[in-house]
């Protein structure tokens, strides 16, 4: 069983949704990244996404755009992202770690080389927001050959036939984009989320994780009733942006801990 599958099995057994958190590699600085991930883990993250910065992040809102640009300005590379994973695994961190990044840096590094190195150092999978399954067949084949998950994204605009085909092409979990839009913290969750998740669930037994716009523990609590996983990213980057350096890791851990506490499903929704 893959580390991701084991994690979802465990969180389901604990009757809670899995908390998936995010760090942009190289932000606030390349040297900070490992500390940021440790802070995410200290708060109780079940899975951590490592965002690979790209010059043209067209699915991202202002927060992650800025973090990516800042990381690139400081010379962040894909090799540094691999080093972060190496360092964490050397510390015996067993939490699933996945790369979330745009396709071109992976393509340029060489797909074969990316998956081979990822498998060797203990990365668990990839989320590539600009690589729909019809374009990702080669990446999916290579990932599968190395027992890595290529996690597909679905959106509220996805048609039933696309949902059906996308879930068959993916593994690990299904990343359900909660809204029609780009990443970024928002006040409220989309009202159409239950319908959308219902449409996806008809076609797959894989865990569903909901992301985009999830910024508060209340959002996590709401999603816990509907999905096996919940992703928060921009809200965490905002904490790093807004908190003085001396307190930023503690502040990050505090928010993650509050979100983690909200992952437990309420009894009323059990029926």
């Amino acid at each position: 069983m893959s580390r991701l599958a084991a994690t979802f099995a465990q969180t389901q057994a604990e009757n809670r949704t899995a908390l998936i958190t995010f760090a942009t590699v190289g932000f606030p600085s390349p040297a900070d990244t490992v500390h940021v991930v440790r802070a995410l883990l200290a708060g109780g993250s079940d899975v951590v996404e490592l965002g690979i910065p790209f010059s043209d992040p067209l699915a991202d809102g202002a927060t992650i755009q800025h973090a990516s640009q800042s990381a690139l300005d400081q010379g962040t590379t894909l090799a540094m992202a691999f080093d972060v994973v190496r360092e964490l695994r050397a510390e015996n961190v067993t939490t699933p770690l996945v790369f979330m990044g745009y396709y071109n840096p992976f393509l340029h590094y060489g797909l074969e080389r990316v998956v081979a190195e990822a498998a060797e150092i203990g990365l668990d999978g990839f989320i590539v927001p600009d690589l729909p399954p019809e374009e990702g067949q080669e990446f999916a084949r290579l990932a599968k050959a190395h027992d890595l998950d290529l996690i597909p994204l679905l959106a509220p605009t996805s048609t039933d036939s696309r949902i059906q085909a996308n879930v068959q092409a993916g593994s690990g979990f299904i990343y359900c984009v909660s809204l029609t839009g780009v990443t970024g913290a928002r006040d409220q969750l989309s009202a159409t989320l239950p319908d959308f998740l219902g449409r996806v669930r008809k076609h797959t037994d894989l865990p569903l994780a909901v992301g985009f716009g999830v910024s508060r523990p209340e959002h996590v609590a709401t999603i816990a009733q509907m999905a096996e996983g919940v992703v928060s990213a921009s809200a965490l980057i905002n904490i790093l942006e807004d908190t003085p350096a001396a307190q930023r890791y503690d502040a990050l851990t505090d928010l993650v801990r509050a979100m983690r506490a909200a992952t437990v499903r309420q009894a009323t929704a059990e029926t």
Partner: peptide, 14 residues
Amino acid sequence: GGRYVPETVIPALE
């Protein structure tokens, strides 16, 4: 060529 874009807009492209 191809369609290297987020899933959200793919149905509109179709």
